[in-house]
């Protein structure tokens, strides 16, 4: 069952340290494929840490693994992901004349990938 969430790509220190090893290395790929979610949202979607989910919008889709965060730390209906190739798959190219693609607060659909 798909549900709409707001995706917030951003920096994390792990994303920062792993990119120094190289962007084609396993750790960077793992870090940038980890989606932090509100635990309540995860419970409702019957997700547990490490489950694969598909994120979809008009631009494209990507598959990432989810990780729960305390509900008071991340608002309902939002999810955080470190910048990287997976978040790029969802980024629209329209910059509204600014040069800056909309890179935060992106509306995406999330769905669990059945094992």
């Amino acid at each position: 069952m798909a549900e709409k969430i707001i995706l917030i790509p951003g920096r994390s220190s792990k994303q920062g340290t792993s990119l120094n090893q190289g962007k084609l290395k396993d750790e960077y790929i793992a870090v940038t494929s980890t989606l932090e979610m509100n635990q309540d949202d995860m419970d409702r979607l019957k997700l547990v840490d490490g489950d694969e989910v598909r994120l979809i919008n008009d631009v494209g889709e990507t598959i990432v693994r989810c990780l729960g965060k305390k509900p008071e730390d991340l608002p309902h209906g939002t999810a955080f992901i470190p910048y990287g190739p997976p978040s790029s798959q969802l980024m629209a190219s329209d910059t509204a004349g600014s040069g800056m693609p909309l890179s935060k607060h992106m509306e995406v659909e999330i769905e669990k990938i059945s094992a």
Binding site: K23, V59, G60, Y83, G84, P85, S87, S88, Q89, L90, M91, A92, S93, P101
Partner: peptide
Amino acid sequence: SDPASNFPKKAI
């Protein structure tokens, strides 16, 4: 810089 990994899909 590495636009191939962090630009929007269409740009890449």
